[in-house]
Amino acid sequence: MSTQLLPFGKKGWDYGRVPDLAGRHFAITGGNVGIGFETAKMLLQRNARVTIFCRSEERTRKAVDELSDFRSVKARIEYELMDLANMESVRNAAERFVGFHEKLDGLINNTSIVMVPERVETPEGFELQMGANHFGHFLFSALLFDLIKKGNGRIVTVSSVAYRWGAERIDFDNLHFEENYSPLAAFAQSKLANIMFTLELNRRLLAKEMPASGYLCHPGYAGTNAQRTGSGFFTRVGLEVMNVMFAHSPFHGAKSQVLALTDPEAKPGLFYGPTKMKGLSGPVGVTPISHAAGDAEAAARLWDISEKLTGVDWRLPPA
């Protein structure tokens, strides 16, 4: 791994760099808890309009009430119901949103399902983590893409340094883990797919002489509910121990996605996040991307498979 970069100084990026966001509209998947909640809170404090997309109406209404306490007078908070693991739900939510908005300044693909103990299939037959973390976000980004283009906006996809821990490359012959299911490997593959999708998006946009709009980030090791709700008992116990030893707050974990979404100096395709302990903690800067994640041939193959399986056409030919 090459030396990690801190382009924002030794203390790294912080929220003091967030500009006034009045008049700008951002969408966040999973903005009702954890890192997504902290991101929404910061955007609202800087006068933005924010729409969060979540599964549970009860929990989302509660989050909207809490977020309303933090918003500025100019800010606005809204929500839409959407289950990223269900492609019909994604399509319906996107259709509702597109029908009422003319542009979007940024989308944060934030939701993650983490280390499900036993293999679960989505209604489409996808392995759950790959289905929600990659295919759901791939489809949702495509359906909102015209609004994002009109707003000269950014598509920010949240990956994880865990992509290195269980999947060196995408296993196209076992994409949905019908064989040899592993919670960590399945999660890692979905997070690897997040990176490859974003880099391939930028390659295809640049090939059409359009500005790259795909941004990448990771939260490091942040203590969130995602680690507690999806994992098995022994995994949860292990994660709780790691939380005590290593985890930082969701407030710190959200810095990298606010950076990628709002900072004028952020660059498409760089992997923003904590830079110490191999990306688990520390000041926020740039984290290196592995050779496997940067494999353009594999990324183009994944893109084509993703279009076929989700039934969406981005109208972006390969570079």
Results as ranks from 00 to 15, higher is better:
15 Y>K: 02
121 E>F: 12
307 E>T: 04
50 V>E: 05
174 N>V: 05
35 I>E: 06
211 P>F: 00
304 D>P: 09
314 W>L: 03
50 V>N: 08
179 E>H: 15
88 E>W: 08
127 E>R: 01
239 L>C: 12
108 I>C: 07
140 F>H: 00
55 R>D: 08
114 V>H: 09
38 E>T: 01
273 G>F: 02
57 E>G: 04
165 W>I: 15
96 R>F: 05
132 A>V: 05
116 V>A: 12
288 P>L: 11
204 R>H: 01
30 G>P: 08
219 P>V: 05
119 R>A: 02
275 T>I: 06
271 F>I: 03
38 E>A: 03
43 L>A: 10
235 T>H: 10
311 G>P: 06
92 N>G: 09
205 L>V: 01
165 W>G: 12
317 P>V: 00
67 L>H: 06
147 L>H: 07
139 L>G: 05
81 L>D: 01
1 M>S: 14
90 V>I: 08
112 S>R: 15
29 T>P: 04
32 N>Q: 10
297 E>A: 15
107 L>Q: 05
46 R>T: 14
69 D>M: 14
25 H>E: 15
71 R>W: 08
218 H>L: 05
258 V>Y: 01
242 M>C: 14
10 K>Q: 11
178 E>H: 15
247 A>F: 09
151 G>Y: 11
319 A>W: 14
100 F>W: 15
136 G>I: 07
316 L>V: 02
233 F>A: 12
262 T>K: 03
199 L>M: 03
207 A>G: 08
149 K>E: 15
30 G>Q: 01
159 S>Q: 04
172 F>V: 04
257 Q>C: 01
273 G>N: 00
112 S>L: 11
40 A>E: 07
40 A>M: 07
252 H>T: 15
38 E>H: 02
236 R>V: 09
309 L>S: 13
178 E>S: 15
180 N>F: 10
158 V>S: 01
179 E>M: 11
4 Q>D: 12
275 T>Q: 03
234 F>K: 12
305 I>F: 04
186 A>I: 10
109 N>I: 03
107 L>R: 06
80 E>R: 08
290 S>W: 15
168 E>R: 13
263 D>V: 02
265 E>S: 08
25 H>G: 11
149 K>I: 13
87 M>V: 09
161 V>G: 09
130 M>L: 15
164 R>L: 11
